[in-house]
């Protein structure tokens, strides 16, 4: 066991998998000598050399496109997008190839790559450095999307992603990179992709979230005092493991969903639809969602206007309970 923050946990996962499997390579902008702009890949180039830890030219389509070729030909690339907001030039490669190679060749060729994506707001960054695009990623057929929320699942989900036979988009809550520490097992372990995690049992209401918003969720729960909230960390956006959410709502009869991504066509809409299909008769109140807004993510001075707050979450919980 060692105490680690999220940056250290991801670094540790990469190191263990690179030791464990020679086919694992890391590539991206500034991931080598600089150790990544957030230091997530720090030290890897010294341990594994510049053929396996590649400071690539500055081109996202290039990074993911070459990763597709590498993955098809026996490597396991872990590509870094410096910020998730810079993945757009690479979406062609993600959507048109990584997501479809297996289907196109009826399983003869596969594309086991990972794209790491520091995402989310709250770090006073420049434009395009703060978005949460999991709804867009979750809607790509043939892509798995996971979101870490703490050091433990950051390490376990990344190892699972690297070992997964399919392409995985791995979202990192950069605002939380150094905000919390946990005791992490020294050895490699996985947090399975496609498993929702019930973090805290409760009877009165179900609160569903993921990523950096898990912290806001905890804060809201504390502010509520003696309301018994069941807290669920989705962890995998797709393929969504909705059954634990359904089971929970069958027990509590009430639900609030919290995400930083914009509201309309956001992931909460899908979760509500699934609850409608599988837990309708258990619902005692309309489900509420607390989200970001359908506007361009604001620059630093106004970002708190956009980000969900514990106050907004607690208010929604009270409204659902008092329905």
């Amino acid at each position: 066991m060692a105490e680690m923050n999220i940056v250290q946990a991801i670094n540790n996962a990469l190191e263990l998998e690179m030791k464990n499997d020679e086919s694992v390579v890391v590539l991206g902008e500034d991931v080598g000598v600089d150790g990544g702009v957030f230091r997530v890949t720090d030290g890897l180039i010294d341990k594994f050399g510049e053929e396996r830890v590649i400071d690539s030219p500055l081109a996202e389509a290039g990074i993911v496109g070459t990763s597709v070729g590498m993955a098809i030909n026996g490597l396991k690339p872990v590509a870094e997008m410096q910020f998730s907001g810079f993945i757009y030039p690479a979406m062609q490669e993600v959507i048109s190839h990584a997501a479809r190679i297996r289907n196109r060749t009826r399983g003869v060729l596969t594309c086991p790559l990972v794209v790491r994506l520091p995402y989310g707001g709250g770090i006073r960054a420049l434009e395009h450095h703060s978005e949460s695009m999991e709804a867009m990623f979750g809607h790509i057929q043939g892509i798995k999307t996971v979101v870490a929320s703490n050091p433990y699942n950051a390490k376990g989900l990344l190892i699972a992603a690297i070992r997964d036979p399919d392409p995985v988009l791995y979202m990192e809550p950069k605002r939380m990179y150094r905000a919390m520490k946990q005791d992490i097992p020294d050895e490699a372990y996985t947090v399975p992709i496609g498993e929702t995690n019930v973090v805290k049992q409760g009877d009165d209401i179900t609160l569903v979230s993921w990523g950096a918003q898990m912290e806001v969720a905890q804060e809201a729960i504390e502010s509520l005092g003696n309301v018994s909230v069941e807290l669920i960390d989705v962890q995998t956006i797709y393929p969504l493991d909705y059954k634990p959410i359904v089971e929970s709502v069958k027990k509590t009869g009430k639900c609030v969903i919290l995400h930083e991504a914009a509201r309309n066509f956001g992931p909460a809409g899908e979760i509500i639809a699934l609850l409608n299909e599988h837990a309708f008769t258990s619902l005692e109140a309309p489900i509420k969602r607390v989200t970001g807004y359908n506007v361009p993510f604001p620059l630093a001075l106004s970002e708190n206007y956009y980000l969900p707050s514990a106050y907004r979450v607690a208010k929604a919980i009270k409204e659902v309970i008092n329905y």
């Binding site: 309309n264 807004y293 359908n294 506007v295 106004s302 206007y305």
Partner: peptide
């Protein structure tokens, strides 16, 4: 920082009610 409404105002030429509600 401007008023909170400023983050909504410039999304479209005319604000659709679905955003106005937000």
């Amino acid at each position: 920082a401007g008023h909170i409404s400023e983050i909504f105002k410039y999304t479209f030429a005319e604000m659709p009610y679905i955003i106005k509600e937000q």
